[in-house]
Amino acid sequence: MRMFENKVVLVTGGSSGIGRAAALAFAQEGARVVVSARRVDPGEEVVREIRARGGEARFIRCDVSDESQVEALVRQTVEAHGRLDCAFNNAGAMGRHLGPLHSQELTDFDETVNVHMRGVWLCMKHEVRAMLAQSPRGGVLVNTSSVAGLGGVGGQGFYPAAKAGVIALTKTAAQEYARLGIRVNTLVAGSFETPMLDGAVDQLTGGDAGASAALREQIKQFIPMGRIGDASEAAAAALWLCSEASSFVTGHSMIVDGGVSSLLR
């Protein structure tokens, strides 16, 4: 039997990058996948790809910073499939303004924190409620953080702070719900080949092709494994955290970064 046969899995930020890779992987392992994102067309494309491979999926649009949309996302998932077994809370976006803190505006703070930290909390809030109400009770949550959240990173605005908050929220939730049958863990991601990384590189280089290529080489040199990760490698970690293979794991921050943070921990 496949790892997630007949399990219902919700993936936010599922239209691209790590979320897309995870949605495809969950479906390959037999899950009934709900793909969610703000952008409809890319999200629907992921659903079509899953179905073309013989999997089961549907798309529900959601801005995770909006509680009414998050509530509707979880409610519609349960209405469609009867329960929610796993949720990969992965939605995120790089801030539109990178630079030192004194150059940031209140809108930069709100936009970054609303998506990365408030969004994770809102998702957990409604996912936990659904998991506690269903029979049998319980489920698994995995929240995406970043190695940037393990410490401050100059020039990245409020992103590191928001991602640090995700780790703390995850640990709090893990303690609160462990005896209620809900496991909660964090995927702490390093640099992966994703549209988000492309956008960050473009911001930092002004879109200059030569400068972007040079920056990518710098990133590779900074990673002990000497390469940028493939999104499928992050997805594999998320699947393990959601699987029965990790049944005694909760409150854990799984770092998947090619060794970048190994000297700091």
Rank of each mutant, 00 (worst) to 15 (best):
V8P: 13
L10M: 08
A27E: 03
E29D: 11
E29T: 01
R32L: 14
V34K: 08
G43D: 04
G55S: 11
A57C: 05
C62V: 09
E67D: 13
Q69K: 08
A72L: 00
T77C: 08
V78W: 06
V78E: 11
V78Y: 11
H81P: 00
H81E: 14
C86H: 15
G92F: 12
G92Q: 04
G95Q: 12
R96L: 10
R96G: 15
G99N: 03
P100Y: 07
H102P: 08
H102A: 07
Q104V: 04
G119C: 08
V120L: 09
L122H: 01
L122P: 04
C123D: 05
M124K: 11
M124T: 12
R129S: 14
R137A: 15
G138Q: 04
G138K: 09
V142N: 09
T144H: 00
F158P: 13
A162V: 01
V166A: 07
A168E: 05
K171H: 13
A178F: 10
R179Y: 08
R179P: 01
I182H: 07
F192I: 09
P195Q: 01
A200R: 02
Q203H: 02
G207P: 06
A209G: 01
S212N: 01
A213W: 06
R216I: 03
Q221L: 09
I223V: 15
I228F: 13
G229Y: 03
A236P: 06
A236T: 12
L239N: 12
A245L: 05
S246P: 09
G251I: 10
I255D: 05
D257G: 08
